[in-house]
Structures are given as structure tokens and as C-alpha cells.
């Protein structure tokens, strides 16, 4: 879409664009180019010498079982976060769409976790589930569950999934609610007249019509699980125990900042960039289709 009317000036548009473009080049393009450049280099332990090693960093990564395990961890983590985040918020949004009384109160009380920082969400959940003093740990122990996420990898994964889902529910909820409210009432009413009960109506009418929203949220939630959950993990498990919760982003940070492996970390960055680009392309192709929907 273009404007019919345009102003003319030889310098003004460039001046208006200059701040944005300058920051984009300095803080986005230059670092990204460097990440790609470092990915093909090997640096000695003191950072004094670098040599060009071609694809060696990438080959080393894919031969490293920790890295491959990190892929698997990320996949499990993001599927769990996306599935539970979407399922729970779809249930809540469907219910909120039904009720008339108190709708605003419910909405307000369900959306505030969006304002909580990922790291703070992690601290809250880590405290409730703390192995020795946590209140939920106490209840679990009473029920005969031995809970200690500091030594049990599966429980650590469960903890970061719960904290991440908790923080993301409000976002999914708002999008589902908007999606539900845009479904024409006449369709639902027609199904009701034909004798379909509420459950049947949901699965045959409402859910298919919501599929664009659901698909959009699926991509957004996967991106969220890939990148934005860094704070949750750093504030709770720090990738442990024994890398059970070391997702790809955390490994980039750990290898680059803590272990000072510049080449390896940059190669991981490049792989992550490719993943983000793929996810963004999927998202945008979908958004274009949604416009015609």
C-alpha cells in the first residue's frame, strides 16, 4: 500500500531515518556480521591470536553430544511450554468469553503476570518449590512425592516449564479472547439450533475458526520458549542439573560468557539466527494468509 500524496525533500527523509538506521547498523548489523565472522575463527585461550578455520567450529558443535542434547532439551522445553501455555489459556479464554458477570475482573486478574520479568517469575517459582523450605515441596512431601529439582533433571525441567507457562498465560489468554469475540454469533447459534451441545460446538465450530489464532500463538510461544525464557532459567536452574535444562540460548550465553569460547559460541549464535529467521518467515507467511481469511 502506498500513499497517493507524498512530500518532496532531498534531505529530510534521510535525516528522519538517520537515528533508527544508525542504531540498527551499530547495534544490530555490525554485531551480527561479527558473530558470523567469529563463527569461522578459532581463538587461542588468551584471546591473542585468531585463525580462520572454516566450518571447523560448526563441525565441532555437531560432534559435541552436549550441543545435540541441548537441541533436544530445547525441543522438549518449547513443546511443553507452547502446549500447556496454549491449552490452559484456551480453556480460560473460552470460559471468560461465556461469562457476563465479572468478566472485567477475571480479565484484569488473569493478565497481570505479563508484567512480571522472566527472572522474577523464576525466583517466585523456585521459592515455592525450594527443596528444603518450599511450601509446595512440603505439600508434595505430604503426598509422598520426593521433590528436589536441584538434583533431579526432570523436576528441574518441570519447574522451568511451570514458571514459563505461568508468565505466558496472560498473553495467550488475551489473543484467544480477542479471537473468540470475533467469531460470528450466528454460526454458534445455528449449531445450537441444530442441536449441538456446548462441547460439540466448541470442537466443530469454535476451534476450527480459532485455528489462525492458535497457529499464530504456537509460533509466538515457541519463539518465547527459545529466547525469552533465558531469565527463568538463569534465575533458577542455570541450565542444570547436568545440563537437563540447558536450552540453546542458555548454552550460547554459557559458552560465550562463562566459558569464553568465542568461536563455538558465535557458531551457535549463527545457528540460532537461522532458526529465528525460519520462525519469522513462517510467522509472516501465515500472517499474510490470515489477512485473506
Amino acid at each position: 500500500m502506498e500513499k497517493r500524496v507524498a512530500f518532496r525533500s532531498a534531505w529530510l527523509p534521510y535525516a528522519l531515518l538517520a537515528p533508527q538506521i544508525a542504531i540498527t547498523i551499530i547495534f544490530f548489523f555490525w554485531p551480527a556480521v561479527q558473530a558470523v565472522w567469529f563463527a569461522f575463527q578459532l581463538q587461542d585461550a588468551f584471546g591473542l591470536q585468531t585463525e580462520f578455520v572454516g566450518l571447523q567450529n560448526f563441525a565441532a558443535l555437531f560432534a559435541d553430544e552436549h550441543y545435540l542434547a541441548s537441541f533436544q532439551t530445547t525441543a522438549v522445553f518449547s513443546v511443553l511450554v507452547a502446549f500447556f501455555g496454549i491449552a490452559i489459556s484456551l480453556l480460560l479464554a473460552t470460559m471468560a468469553d461465556r461469562v457476563v458477570r465479572g468478566a472485567l475482573v477475571y480479565k484484569t486478574l488473569l493478565i497481570w503476570p505479563y508484567a512480571v520479568a522472566a527472572a522474577v517469575a523464576g525466583v517466585l517459582w523456585a521459592f515455592m518449590f525450594a527443596p528444603s523450605i518450599g511450601i509446595v515441596t512440603y505439600v508434595l512431601k505430604r503426598m509422598g512425592v520426593d521433590w528436589n529439582w536441584i538434583i533431579n533433571g526432570d523436576q528441574a525441567m518441570l519447574l522451568v516449564v511451570m514458571a514459563s507457562v505461568w508468565k505466558q498465560i496472560s498473553y495467550n489468554f488475551l489473543f484467544f479472547l480477542a479471537g473468540l469475540q470475533s467469531i460470528p454469533r450466528s454460526l454458534v447459534e445455528a449449531a445450537a439450533i441444530d442441536g449441538a451441545g456446548p462441547v460439540r460446538r466448541f470442537w466443530t465450530v469454535v476451534f476450527p475458526l480459532l485455528s489462525p489464532t492458535t497457529f499464530f500463538l504456537l509460533v509466538v510461544n515457541i519463539v518465547y520458549a527459545f529466547f525469552d525464557t533465558f531469565g527463568v532459567i538463569d534465575a533458577t536452574t542455570q541450565g542444570g542439573p547436568a545440563q537437563a535444562t540447558q536450552i540453546l540460548v542458555y548454552k550460547v550465553y554459557y559458552d560465550g560468557v562463562k566459558a569464553a569460547d568465542l568461536g563455538g559460541s558465535s557458531a551457535q549464535s549463527v545457528i540460532l539466527m537461522l532458526i529465528v529467521i525460519a520462525l519469522t518467515v513462517i510467522q509472516f507467511r501465515f500472517v499474510e494468509r490470515r489477512v485473506q481469511y
Binding site: 551499530i26 547495534f27 544490530f28 555490525w30 554485531p31 551480527a32 561479527q34 558473530a35 567469529f38 529466547f227 533465558f230 540460548v249 550460547v252 550465553y253 560465550g256 560468557v257 568465542l262 559460541s265 558465535s266 549464535s269 540460532l272 539466527m273 529465528v276 529467521i277 519469522t280
Partner: peptide, 14 residues
């Protein structure tokens, strides 16, 4: 397509 998380170290260097 380039969140901070994927270009941590070079951005830090800049």
C-alpha cells in the same frame, strides 16, 4: 530477526 540473545557477545564487544 536478530534478538539480543542470538548476538550476545559481539554486541557486548561493540
Amino acid at each position: 530477526m536478530l534478538p539480543v540473545e542470538v548476538r550476545i557477545i559481539p554486541t557486548f564487544k561493540v
